[in-house]
Amino acid sequence: MTQTDPQSEIQQISQLAQSADIAQNLRDIAAQYPGQVIFSTSFSWEDQAISHIIFSENLDIQVFTLDTGRMFPETYSTWSRTLEKYNHPITAYYPDALSLQKFIAEKGPNSFYESVENRKQCCHIRKVEPLQRALNGKKVWITGIRAEHSPNRHDMTQVEWDGSNNVVKYHPILHWTTDETIAFINTNNIPYNPLHDKGFVSIGCAPCTRAIRPGEDFRAGRWWWEDASKKECGLHVHAEVKS
C-alpha cells in the first residue's frame, strides 16, 4: 500500500484552493479526489454556507454530521429544513452505544460539569470517535472553521495536515468575518439555526452551549465553566506534519 506523503498532499490541495471562488476550489478538489472528499456540518452559519455551495453545485463531496444525542431542538429543525431545501443526503454518525452506555452508567449523564477530564471523555465518545469513523479512508476533510471563533485558530492555515485522522483539512472560509458569513446566508436565503439570533455563536451540545453576552469572546458560550485555554472538544486537535 502506498503511504501518504503529507507535504505532497498539502501542496497539491493548496494549489487547488488558490481561487477566490470557493465553489471553484471545492469543485477542483472534488474532481482531483473523487469519492474521497468529505464535509462535516454542525448546521452553524459557517457550515450552512458551505453546505449551500456543495449542494447547489452538486459537488462530489459527502456531507455528514455528528449527532451526539444532546443537540438543541433548533439544530434538528435546521437539519430538517436543510434536507427540505436542497434534497441532498446528510449522513449522521452516532456515538458507539456500548461506550456511551458504560460512561453514563459509571459517571452519570452530566458528569462533564464535574471535571475537564470527564468533559473530554464525553466529547471523545460523542464526537471524536464517530468523527474517526466518518473520516476513515477519506483524503480531504472540509470544515467550516473560522479564525474568529477561537484564539488558537488565528494562526491556522487554510490547508493543513491532520495526523490523527490522516487527512488533509481545508478551511475554505477561515478568514471570513461574521458579517460576511451572515451576509452570504441572507443573500442566498440559506436556512440557519435560529439560536444564532438569540446570541448563540458556536453551537454544540445543549448542556455545554449558552448565548454570549455583549463584549464576550466568541468561545465564551462553550464550556463556560472551564478555563478558556481548555475549550476544545478534540475534533480539531491533532498532530501536525513536520516540515
Rank of each mutant, 00 (worst) to 15 (best):
L16N: 00
L16M: 11
L16Q: 01
L16H: 02
Q18M: 12
Q18E: 14
Q18T: 11
S19H: 01
S19T: 01
A20P: 13
A20I: 08
D21E: 14
A23L: 10
Q24I: 01
N25G: 06
N25R: 02
L26F: 06
L26T: 03
R27Q: 13
D28R: 04
D28A: 09
D28V: 01
I29N: 03
A30L: 06
Q32L: 08
Q32C: 13
Q32F: 06
Y33C: 07
Y33H: 08
P34R: 02
G35D: 15
G35S: 14
I38M: 04
F39I: 04
S40N: 09
S42T: 10
S42Q: 07
F43R: 04
F43K: 01
S44M: 07
W45Y: 15
E46I: 00
Q48A: 05
A49L: 14
I50M: 06
I50E: 04
S51N: 14
H52K: 03
H52F: 06
I53H: 00
I54R: 01
S56K: 03
D60A: 02
I61H: 06
I61F: 15
Q62M: 15
V63H: 00
L66V: 14
L66M: 02
D67N: 11
D67T: 05
G69A: 05
R70Y: 15
M71E: 15
M71Y: 09
M71D: 14
F72S: 03
P73H: 09
P73D: 14
E74M: 03
T75Y: 09
Y76T: 08
Y76R: 07
S77E: 15
T78I: 03
T78F: 02
T78W: 00
T78N: 06
W79V: 00
W79N: 02
W79H: 15
W79I: 03
S80G: 07
R81N: 15
R81T: 10
T82F: 04
L83C: 07
Y86H: 05
N87A: 12
H88W: 11
P89C: 07
I90V: 13
T91F: 10
A92M: 11
A92R: 08
A92S: 13
Y93D: 08
P95Y: 05
A97E: 14
L98W: 10
L98F: 13
L98G: 01
L98S: 13
S99M: 12
S99N: 08
S99H: 11
L100Q: 11
L100H: 05
K102L: 12
K102M: 11
F103N: 00
F103K: 03
A105L: 08
E106R: 03
E106A: 07
